[in-house]
Design a protein around this nucleic acid. Structure first.
Lengths: 259, 259
DNA sequence: GAGTGGTCTAGACCACTGA
DNA sequence: CAGTGGTCTAGACCACTCG
């Protein structure tokens, strides 16, 4: 669909003509937002790079700067882009500090959020169980990468994560590459595998510690643990990660804001 | 501070002259946003009522409609106002359906979110413990209203809430008024006590059920329960509610979105 | 049809960054 | 200094609601 704007009535008629009834009409800045999203998804600009200036984009799309601006505003609100006055607009990265804790909501009871020590326990290719396959939109038995890891704060284990990733996009992921990487895991994913996590949905429960988790977290079997299931989605709502984290919340808590 | 816009350098100088150094400079639309917020807080327009049109407000503040628009956009993003095309802009209410579940993140595992049955167990005026006083910004021993209630889904108790409210604003709150009210509790608060919850912060943990909660939730003592502590804030970040909810998460979960 | 919010434009000027 | 994003304006027209 070209970037054009016509009165809704005319647009409706045109759309009916091509038998495309669903969206009916969307404002110019939405169309441009969609085009920019597609460019991001296609990797036209790498994470951390600057996209063209508002003036350039306005010229490219043949609209006013204000319209481009509104499209970029929307993408910045969605954390896909980051604006920096005087410098430009950049493709967001999972390496930036201010989004470091966007996905890890764990906080110490004293408020400190010191960096966690990571330890990768396991990383192997397995066949997806029915549950994992359903979550990731795969078929039972498809290859997935299973990662197990432990997060520790001040020397004490606090989080035991069980992570499943679709085998296709994550071909070549090994424990060595995970352990050898300095930054956040999601940064490795976007830099090395071209998979960017856009948003996630979490389901949180209280459960009793089973034997394996109890051993890793050094708690008694049956102790209450926070179970955090996460489904991470990439562009176009494509599921690209499913994980279950077990948190020892005796000295930490999951922080949430209701706005 | 009047609604005026001057170059930043001049504004800085003016502000220094009156020894007000903190904010230094804020754009016009921020100033208007602040003025509108103050009007909302003062109750110039009641919840559910329409505020003046953009054109009227532009005339009142002597700015362009676009500037008023940006201020209203920000307030709508914060859920303080609701825009309705063709009708006007309205003061947001806790009675509206689409924000019914903004504060209750509990969802049944099958996805259904049928309305809960409420049962008010207790409502009495007590003296604030040190913990409650600290959370609400009161002094130990100040009067607070303590409410205990049970939420049930399909006849099964799922949530046991312990709620503390500052005694001043909530003078006259009784179990009868709570039980007799049809809509959401927060709607009662805003309609009858002029206290509107703007946002909240939650701390989530897994805990073992103690005797009292175990009895109300009909689970075994020691069972894992989700502990959800909530501090609700009104205009100007003023704390107006502190509660601890204990959730039985065997068939329900706390749903969260990371964006 | 009058009145509301929603989109789009064109242009001016300001604030910030970095060469 | 040039180039970027950020603010503000004035005006046009569209979409929606309701009498």
């Amino acid at each position: 669909m070209p970037v054009t704007n016509v009165p809704a009535a005319a647009a409706d008629a045109a759309l009916r003509d091509v038998a495309e009834a669903a969206p009916a009409f969307s404002p110019l800045y939405r169309q441009i937002q969609a085009l920019l999203t597609r460019s991001l998804q296609a990797g036209e600009w790498r994470p951390g790079e600057a996209i063209p200036s508002e003036v350039d984009l306005a010229a490219r799309f043949k609209v006013s700067q204000g319209t481009v601006r509104k499209a970029i505003d929307a993408l910045a609100d969605d954390n896909l882009l980051v604006r920096r006055q005087g410098k430009g607009t950049f493709v967001a990265t999972h390496g930036e500090q201010h989004i470091q804790f966007r996905f890890l909501r764990l906080t110490a009871d004293d408020g400190s959020r010191t960096g966690a020590a990571r330890r990768f326990i396991d990383c192997r290719r397995v066949r997806a169980s029915a549950e994992v396959a359903r979550a990731l939109g795969l078929r039972s038995g498809d290859m997935v990468v299973q990662v197990q890891r432990l997060l520790s704060f001040r020397g004490r284990p606090v989080v035991f994560d069980d992570i499943w990733l679709p085998g296709g996009p994550f071909k070549g992921l090994t424990a060595e590459r995970l352990s050898g990487y300095e930054g956040p895991m999601y940064q490795l994913f976007e830099a090395e595998f071209g998979v960017r996590m856009i948003r996630a949905e979490e389901k949180i429960r209280a459960v009793a510690a089973e034997a394996v988790a109890a051993r890793w977290l050094e708690v008694a079997e049956g102790s209450p643990l926070l179970s955090v299931e996460r489904l991470s989605l990439s562009y176009g709502e494509r599921p690209v990660e499913w994980r279950r984290g077990l948190y020892d919340t005796r000295h930490h808590h999951y922080r949430n804001e209701l706005n």
